[in-house]
Design a binder for these strands. Structure first.
Length: 309
DNA sequence: TGAATTGTTATCGT
DNA sequence: AACGATAACAATTC
């Protein structure tokens, strides 16, 4: 069970996208696109016929991940980006065969929004129940996209110093900052909650108030939880992203009402920036300001209850 | 049945 | 004016 919440979503974050890329790489690298079709034009930029023309006979020279984007590097220097957003999935279909399920949920034909035919007769399918996913073709040399993304947290450039500078530069709640792809690339709701719990930091803690030791703990927590996610092929919480094992290792996400695995306290669910947020109140003490705000809210609720009798 | 889910963008407030 | 917080929105599932 997931506490009081009836529905959870396993939106692909950095470890899930990395896993998808690794699974697809051998199937796609050195293949050529022979056709592209979209059944939901709004998800494709520029217009589908332009993308189709641009991709025809282009070879995929590299498949990689940047933030939560799947990146196809093409032999003319252009790049094709796929962002899965909330419910996107990419699956490979063998020549003349069924989709390569790898033992996971079957392709839902009605949710296939785009297809790429490959020169070996195989096909790449883009399924996306909620239609929030995006397909974007970038001409050679275009880097405006990359410029808006923060550092990759698993790369060497993401040092303790780099994180300290990011935290110091702005005075924001830690959760909002970690979710901001312009600050750090690749974290989503699950791994942000997990990293903050491991670091013993509250999601509302102002980012510019951390001690050096706390910055170090957060740095370690972010890298460890993402690396662990990749090692376990990501977290599978529902039909969106099957095939991973990380869900059984989560310490707070989706565990409201259950005991903290570190201290035994009860995991709580709050809403921070309109996002469901999971904390251990003992391991992640709220900042003074949020404690005061919480007390004021609680007082007001009590008063209202009294007034109503 | 409606609450829950994310990233982007527009708007509000300080 | 600049920046941070907040709301609205896309569409679907259970």
């Amino acid at each position: 069970m997931c506490g009081q919440t009836g529905y959870t979503a396993a939106v692909p974050e950095l470890p899930e996208v990395e896993t998808i890329v690794r699974r697809l790489r051998a199937r796609l690298e050195r293949r050529r696109f022979v056709a592209f079709r979209t059944r939901w034009a709004r998800n494709t930029q520029p217009a589908a016929r332009l993308v189709s023309a641009a991709l025809r006979q282009r070879e995929i020279v590299g498949l990689s991940r940047r933030a939560k984007f799947v990146v196809f590097a093409l032999n003319d220097g252009a790049r094709l980006l796929v962002h899965l957003r909330m419910s996107g999935r990419l699956s490979w279909q063998a020549p003349g065969g069924e989709a390569d399920e790898q033992g996971v949920a079957p392709v839902r034909r009605e949710h296939v929004r785009a297809t790429w035919a490959l020169d070996d007769g195989g096909r790449l399918l883009f399924e996306d129940a909620r239609k929030f996913g995006r397909i974007c073709w970038l001409p050679a040399g275009s880097d405006y996209w990359d410029a808006d993304l923060g550092p990759e947290p698993l790369e060497d450039e993401f040092s303790v110093e780099a994180l300290a500078a990011i935290l110091r530069r702005r005075a924001r709640g830690l959760k909002a900052l970690l979710l901001d792809q312009r600050a750090i690339a690749g974290l989503g709701n699950i791994y942000t909650d997990e990293a903050l719990h491991r670091a013993g930091l509250h999601p509302l803690r102002p980012s510019d108030t951390l001690s050096r030791q706390q910055v170090e703990r957060l740095h370690t927590a972010i890298r460890d939880v993402l690396q662990e996610g990749i090692t376990h092929n990501g977290a599978s919480l529902d039909w969106v992203y099957p095939g991973g094992n990380m869900q059984s290792l989560l310490r707070v996400y989706g565990r409201s009402g259950e005991p903290c695995r570190r201290c035994g306290g009860v995991i709580q669910r709050l809403v921070v920036g309109q996002r469901g947020t999971h904390v251990c109140p003992a391991c992640q003490p709220p900042p003074r300001s949020s404690r005061a705000a919480g007390a004021a809210r609680a007082g007001r609720i009590v008063r209202l209850a009294r007034e109503r009798g």
